[in-house]
């Protein structure tokens, strides 16, 4: 079952990358990052069948970091929305000449 799990993990990661590259809604972008983290978690769990439970411990750490990232990232999104009245990343052109 390790091979198919790695295949699904690669598919999910590719879909997450596709979302990050194509979407401009900041919230959906964050969700795509979460999807990519989930894909990596799946390969961690699959490979932990081969290499011991260290992979599962790493998944728990990844989840913690993902929770922290979501909290801070969403706070930044709220701050950006209060300033620009939008979460469309194409509308944030402060650094463009």
């Amino acid at each position: 079952m390790i091979g198919p799990a790695l295949f699904f993990s690669a598919c999910l990661f590719a879909i997450g990358v596709m979302g990050v590259l194509t979407r401009r809604n900041a919230l959906i972008l964050f969700m795509c990052v979460e999807l990519m983290l989930n894909a990596v978690n799946l390969s961690f769990v699959a490979l932990s069948k081969l290499h011991g439970v260290g992979g599962q411990v790493f998944v728990i750490f990844v989840m913690t970091v993902a929770a922290a990232e979501a909290a801070v990232g969403l706070a930044i999104v709220i701050a950006v929305f209060r300033h620009f009245r939008t979460v469309d990343l194409g509308a944030l052109r402060l650094l463009r000449g």
């Binding site: 750490f61 913690t64 970091v65 922290a68």
Partner: peptide, 19 residues
Amino acid sequence: TSVLLLVAIIGAVTLAKRG
């Protein structure tokens, strides 16, 4: 990790409050 979560809580509250 617990320190990281504490920092994330404080950061989120500060960022969301400043607005």
